[in-house]
Structures are given as structure tokens and as C-alpha cells.
């Protein structure tokens, strides 16, 4: 576990979390740090887009339904701006249409809330390998 943590932390310093739900913003970074990732949380897509952490972000864990810009909107916006950050979507709504759309737009993984820690880790591995 130790060498894995070092490896991840060294090569990919930042996993960003964008979710309007506070309990996710509190719990998910702890778990990510347990995994060994550096992490930072944002409460909205707009906040992430204007942040200087954007360029350091190696992977984005992104909520779908948010007030203002949605997860899918942010995914399109990043693509338009030329940022090819791998994205793992998380959603409380079991909407297959949205899930399909996210994959069409290049999502690495799409997890329905609540998801297990192993499912998340697997998704992160896929995302970072893609990178």
C-alpha cells in the first residue's frame, strides 16, 4: 500500500472533487487521502473552472446534478478549453440517459451514489491509466 501511495502521490498530485452536496465534499476527500491522493473540493463547476488548481488536476470526480452548470456542462466546457482531464461521474439519480451521454462525451466511469470504496478505487485506476 505504501509504495502504491507514493507512486500515485508523486506522479499525480491532485484528484479534484466537484459536488454541491456538503457530505460528499467532506467524506470523499478523506477517503481519497486514505488512498494516498492529494485532493481538493469545489462546491460548483464554476468554482473549479476559475480555480488555479485546474491545471494541476490529474483526475476529476464530478457530480451530475448541480445548481448552475451541471456535470455534463463542465465536461463539455473542459473539452472546449482543451483540458483532457479524465472524469469519474458520481450521481444520486439513476438516470441511464445521462449516464450514456456522459460516456459518449468521454467519461472514464459513472458511479451511482452510494458507491463502494473499491468501485471508486477501480475507477481511479482506470482514469489514471488513461492519463
Amino acid at each position: 500500500m505504501g509504495s502504491y501511495q507514493e507512486k500515485i502521490a508523486g506522479e499525480f498530485p491532485l484528484v479534484a472533487v466537484v459536488d454541491d452536496d456538503e457530505s460528499v465534499r467532506e467524506s470523499l476527500p478523506d477517503l481519497l487521502r486514505e488512498f494516498g491522493f492529494a485532493t481538493h473540493s469545489f462546491s460548483s463547476a464554476e468554482e473549479f473552472l476559475t480555480s488555479d488548481r485546474l491545471v494541476q488536476t490529474g483526475c476529476l470526480i464530478l457530480d451530475i446534478a448541480m445548481p448552475g452548470m451541471t456535470g455534463l456542462d463542465l465536461q463539455r466546457e473542459l473539452k472546449l478549453r482543451g483540458h483532457s482531464i479524465p472524469i469519474i461521474f458520481i450521481s444520486a439519480q439513476k438516470d441511464e440517459v445521462v449516464r450514456r451521454r456522459a460516456f459518449q462525451q468521454g467519461a472514464v466511469e459513472f458511479l451511482f451514489k452510494p458507491f463502494s470504496d473499491t468501485a471508486l478505487l477501480q475507477a481511479l485506476n482506470t482514469a489514471l491509466r488513461v492519463r
Binding site: 467524506s27 470523499l28 444520486a92
Partner: peptide, 15 residues
């Protein structure tokens, strides 16, 4: 509404 706190519970418990 329910999945949000549920997600928190699962994540926190895992951590």
C-alpha cells in the same frame, strides 16, 4: 434526496 446522505454514509464508513 436520500442517495446523497447515503453516499456520505458509505464513503465515511469505508474511510
Amino acid at each position: 434526496e436520500v442517495n446523497q446522505p447515503l453516499s456520505g454514509i458509505v464513503t465515511n464508513a469505508s474511510t
